[in-house]
């Protein structure tokens, strides 16, 4: 079960894996933003080529990417159908009430589809090649300037790291409690919605109780090890900007220039 949420990270030894999480996060967002600049066949071709290129460079098996797309399949389908039947313009091939199949409709639905796919693939690439902890470190580093506004970024970072640490533990515990209750005759997959929700009560209550006592223990352990939430802490993990990262930024500038040149 935990594999669905955290196990998406696939360790590897490529340029992309070695990039600093800060530059990876920034570049992913930047790429998603400039996708919207693409507006013709040439510019889309450029962006697709880039996407496929980095996927190839990451060395991650394609089936992991398909798995990233699968949960969003219906969202994509509905959006594409909307574009397809509700956009009008150019030659109209077919019409029925408010729905029409037009030249523009076909073109814009193809574009929407491609945009969707690229966004999903690039964000999947980020989580596939970056350990959750590194993503947390990256986000923290990027949020660091907000400390000047007295926002508790350090505490936030510790919270994220503790959450990541305890997700697998809670998953195991949930499975263990579910098994114990199944052994006492609970049928989780049975009956209507109400019955199913009701069946979760014997799982959720112990889970809450255990989590609270766990949190209490954890607070005691942290305090005993000198954590007081206030004083400045040094960092074991320090992010390091490599030449790959500078290189990646340059690639993005070149890509942007090419994109502006290619669009009309």
């Amino acid at each position: 079960m935990d594999k669905l949420i955290l196990g998406r990270f696939v360790p590897g030894d490529t340029w992309i894996h070695h990039m600093d999480p800060r530059s990876k996060i920034l570049i992913s967002f930047y790429f998603i933003a400039i996708i919207f600049l693409a507006n013709n066949v040439a510019s889309y071709a450029l962006m697709i080529a880039f996407t496929l290129g980095v996927i190839f460079l990451s060395g991650v098996d394609q089936k992991f990417f398909f798995r990233g797309v699968r949960p969003l399949f219906f969202l994509i389908l509905i959006t594409v159908l909307f574009q397809l039947f509700l956009t009008r313009g150019g030659h109209v091939y077919w019409q029925f009430g408010p729905f029409a199949l037009s030249q523009y409709g076909i073109i814009s639905s193809v574009y929407v589809f491609l945009r969707f796919m690229m966004i999903i693939l690039m964000s999947t690439l980020l989580t596939l090649t970056t350990a959750p902890l590194m993503i947390a470190d990256g986000i923290e580093a990027l949020l660091n300037p907000l400390k000047k506004l007295h926002l508790p970024i350090d505490q936030l970072a510790l919270m994220i790291s503790l959450a990541l640490r305890f997700v697998p533990t809670l998953m195991d515990e949930t499975m263990a409690i579910m098994n114990a209750q199944r052994a006492r005759g609970v049928d989780f997959g049975d009956g209507g919605l109400m019955k199913r929700v009701k069946a979760m009560v014997p799982v959720l209550i112990p889970l809450f109780v255990n989590t609270f006592s766990r949190a209490g223990d954890l607070a005691i352990a942290m305090e005993s090890r000198g954590y007081n939430g206030e004083t400045e802490r040094t960092r074991y993990r320090v992010l390091q900007w490599h030449r790959v990262d500078t290189g990646a930024i340059i690639v993005m500038i070149v890509l942007t220039a090419a994109l502006i040149f290619a669009r009309n």
Partner: peptide
């Protein structure tokens, strides 16, 4: 963790 709390240099 404990070393970070005690501000031990990197």
């Amino acid at each position: 963790f404990g070393l970070e709390n005690r501000q031990i240099p990197h």
